[in-house]
Simulated assay, not measured.
Amino acid sequence: MEIFSPTFARLEQGLDYASLKQKVIANNIANADTPNYKAKEVRFKTELDQAMSSFEAYRTNPKHFAFASKNTGNFLVTTRSDMVYNHNGNSVDVDREMSELAENQIYYNALIERLNGKFNSLKTVIKGGK
């Protein structure tokens, strides 16, 4: 028996992704002046494509399309080596990193708000709607 809906697991995975991305961005910013350091990034699209390729749904009619679901929690951290921004071989663009940091913070806050909403709903149900 499952106590919580699968939404909690998906929100947890989203928070794991945001946390990893925060660490990678912070690492990039910390190494902005390190010679020959190549900026890293977290790849989510690869994981999303992989998860969507095996998505499973309940079919109420045999004529419905069949597709499967896969629980994925591993995110790929890759090195960006396509550009060099500094004369010392460093590929960290601080402006880009700060922009991604802000975007990631908004994403993280949205997930937290959704998770709080789910917990508040559970609390309301436990209290009997009072």
Results as ranks from 00 to 15, higher is better:
residue 120 N to C: 01
residue 22 Q to R: 10
residue 98 M to P: 02
residue 76 L to C: 02
residue 4 F to K: 10
residue 44 F to G: 13
residue 69 S to H: 09
residue 109 N to M: 13
residue 63 K to E: 14
residue 119 F to K: 11
residue 1 M to T: 08
residue 35 P to G: 02
residue 59 R to I: 03
residue 16 D to H: 12
residue 92 V to Q: 00
residue 114 R to S: 15
residue 102 A to V: 10
residue 52 M to Y: 08
residue 69 S to G: 13
residue 76 L to F: 10
residue 66 A to S: 15
residue 88 N to Q: 04
residue 125 V to H: 06
residue 115 L to M: 14
residue 65 F to K: 14
residue 71 N to C: 05
residue 92 V to Y: 00
residue 30 A to T: 09
residue 127 K to R: 15
residue 104 N to C: 05
residue 63 K to R: 12
residue 28 N to D: 00
residue 126 I to R: 01
residue 80 R to L: 10
residue 20 L to T: 03
residue 64 H to Y: 14
residue 47 E to K: 06
residue 18 A to V: 00
residue 81 S to L: 05
residue 24 V to R: 00
residue 38 K to P: 03
residue 32 A to I: 01
residue 75 F to H: 02
residue 61 N to L: 06
residue 101 L to C: 05
residue 53 S to L: 10
residue 13 Q to K: 15
residue 10 R to D: 08
residue 129 G to I: 04
residue 57 A to N: 12
residue 53 S to E: 14
residue 48 L to C: 06
residue 31 N to P: 03
residue 12 E to F: 08
residue 24 V to I: 08
residue 97 E to S: 01
residue 93 D to W: 01
residue 79 T to A: 08
residue 56 E to D: 15
residue 96 R to L: 13
residue 43 R to I: 12
residue 118 K to R: 12
residue 46 T to S: 14
residue 111 L to T: 00
residue 85 Y to D: 02
residue 1 M to G: 12
residue 48 L to A: 15
residue 22 Q to S: 10
residue 79 T to P: 01
residue 87 H to R: 15
residue 127 K to E: 13
residue 21 K to G: 05
residue 82 D to L: 04
residue 2 E to T: 09
residue 88 N to L: 07
residue 60 T to E: 13
residue 4 F to A: 10
residue 21 K to A: 09
residue 104 N to R: 02
residue 66 A to M: 07
residue 4 F to D: 08
residue 11 L to K: 00
residue 65 F to P: 11
residue 88 N to A: 04
residue 5 S to R: 13
residue 120 N to E: 11
residue 43 R to S: 14
residue 81 S to C: 05
residue 56 E to G: 10
residue 102 A to M: 09
residue 73 G to V: 00
residue 90 N to E: 01
residue 78 T to G: 04
residue 49 D to C: 05
residue 29 I to D: 00
residue 129 G to C: 02
residue 14 G to K: 00
residue 18 A to N: 01
residue 109 N to D: 14
residue 129 G to Y: 06
residue 117 G to K: 02
residue 97 E to D: 05
residue 26 A to G: 13
residue 58 Y to W: 08
residue 34 T to N: 04
residue 128 G to I: 02
residue 99 S to P: 00
residue 68 A to R: 07
residue 46 T to L: 09
residue 53 S to P: 08
residue 112 I to H: 07
residue 17 Y to G: 05
residue 34 T to E: 03
residue 90 N to F: 00
residue 62 P to R: 06
residue 128 G to D: 05
residue 44 F to E: 09
residue 11 L to W: 06
residue 15 L to Y: 02
residue 49 D to L: 11
residue 102 A to G: 07
residue 53 S to A: 10
residue 85 Y to H: 07
residue 105 Q to S: 13
residue 36 N to S: 08
residue 108 Y to R: 09
residue 106 I to N: 09
residue 111 L to G: 07
residue 13 Q to E: 12
residue 109 N to K: 12
residue 121 S to V: 09
residue 67 F to W: 06
residue 89 G to S: 01
residue 68 A to V: 08
residue 27 N to K: 11
residue 87 H to P: 02
residue 4 F to W: 09
residue 90 N to L: 03
residue 10 R to I: 15
residue 47 E to C: 08
residue 2 E to M: 11
residue 25 I to Y: 01
residue 87 H to G: 10
residue 63 K to Q: 14
residue 63 K to L: 15
residue 72 T to N: 14
residue 47 E to V: 15
residue 90 N to R: 01
residue 112 I to P: 04
residue 26 A to P: 04
residue 5 S to I: 02
